[in-house]
């Protein structure tokens, strides 16, 4: 009896998610689009996936299904293969690691399915389209401002994203070329990987504050880590003039800029990416275009314009 109960429960649980998300093929003539997210546990990736879902509601002919790659190359690749087998009309890939997904994206094109790569794009695939923001440029606009803002002979700390991540590596490279190469007087007193995470950045900053009497600037490859470092020094008068840079334009970063704690960030708007993705997929599916590569604008958010971005986050329910 107990065995039967467990078996029934197991069967019910297997069917439940399919029913809940309406995965069954309704055959209602809509275009089926698979959106394969890098990892739903990554707050930016989740923001983007949510935005794609919301934007899709504006297109009555398009039905988007979201799949979670769980930050695993193997998982993302399997999801792409599944989507090909299930004959989706278009597959949007947010790669976990571009090079690892490249052959699978090529399989999508070879199967005659519309293929779009985003955040970050996998470039150079014939027949595939892409919507992205340029990670080098995102960091570069901060770095160029920093050349003027960081004091002569200043001490800076650098918070890096996960090694091997395209955006993490490109942003760090951009800081090297656009700032550190031009300011040899600046000393890096601490540089570590905090994996995009706020809590890891906090522990690192706590240690750096102990080791250094003065830190003039926090150079962070994303906003979460910059916010973590600022959490440590926000009430410390010794660091009241600290300069802090991030990338993403998250709701938290906008609030920190408004409070005068953070200097600036570059908005990588998930709303803009989603808007572009749906517009591109629509054009490709309806035959208006056969191949599109586009980049969204990445405006710099500072104290002067932060109010409009706080409003944007409020409208989206993030604040």
């Amino acid at each position: 009896m107990k065995k039967l109960l467990v078996a029934v429960l197991l069967a019910a649980l297997t069917v439940l998610p399919v029913m809940a998300s309406g995965q069954s093929d309704s055959g209602d003539g809509k275009y089926k689009v698979a959106y394969i997210a890098r990892a739903q546990a990554d707050s930016f990736a989740a923001w983007l996936a949510n935005s794609v879902k919301e934007e899709a509601d504006k297109y009555p002919d398009i039905d988007v299904k979201i799949f979670d790659g769980q930050a695993s190359d193997d998982m993302v690749n399997s999801l792409i293969e599944n989507a090909i087998v299930n004959k989706f009309d278009a597959i949007i890939i947010q790669p976990n690691n571009g090079e690892s997904q490249r052959p699978y994206a090529e399989k999508v094109v070879a199967a005659g399915i519309v293929c779009i790569t985003t955040n970050a794009r996998i470039s150079g695939i014939a027949g595939a389209s892409s919507v992205d923001a340029d990670p080098y440029e995102q960091a570069a606009i901060q770095a160029r401002a920093a050349v003027e803002q960081v004091p002569q002979g200043g001490n800076v700390v650098v918070l890096k994203g996960p090694p091997g991540n395209f955006h993490a590596d490109e942003r760090r490279k951009s800081w090297e070329m656009e700032f550190f190469a031009k300011r040899p007087d600046v000393t890096i007193v601490g540089e570590q990987i905090a994996n995009w995470n706020k809590d890891e950045a906090m522990s690192l900053m706590e240690d750096w504050v102990q080791a250094n009497d003065s830190i003039d600037a926090i150079v962070s490859m994303n906003d979460n880590m910059a916010a973590g470092a600022l959490e440590i020094v926000k009430d410390n008068s010794k660091f009241s003039d600290i300069i802090a840079y991030g990338v993403d334009g998250t709701a938290e970063a906008c609030l920190l800029i408004k409070d005068g704690l953070m200097t600036s960030t570059t908005l990588q708007s998930a709303y803009d990416l989603a808007e572009n993705l749906l517009s591109v997929v629509n054009q490709l599916l309806t035959g208006e275009a056969t191949q599109i590569d586009t980049d969204i604008d990445c405006p710099m958010v500072t104290i002067d314009n932060v109010d409009e971005y706080i409003e944007m986050h409020k409208r989206a329910g993030a604040l």
Partner: peptide, 16 residues
């Protein structure tokens, strides 16, 4: 538990 936390927040952080 991780799934429930992500489901509840839709993967987004809670601020303020």
């Amino acid at each position: 538990a991780r799934g429930a936390a992500l489901l509840y927040t839709n993967g987004q952080n809670i601020y303020q």
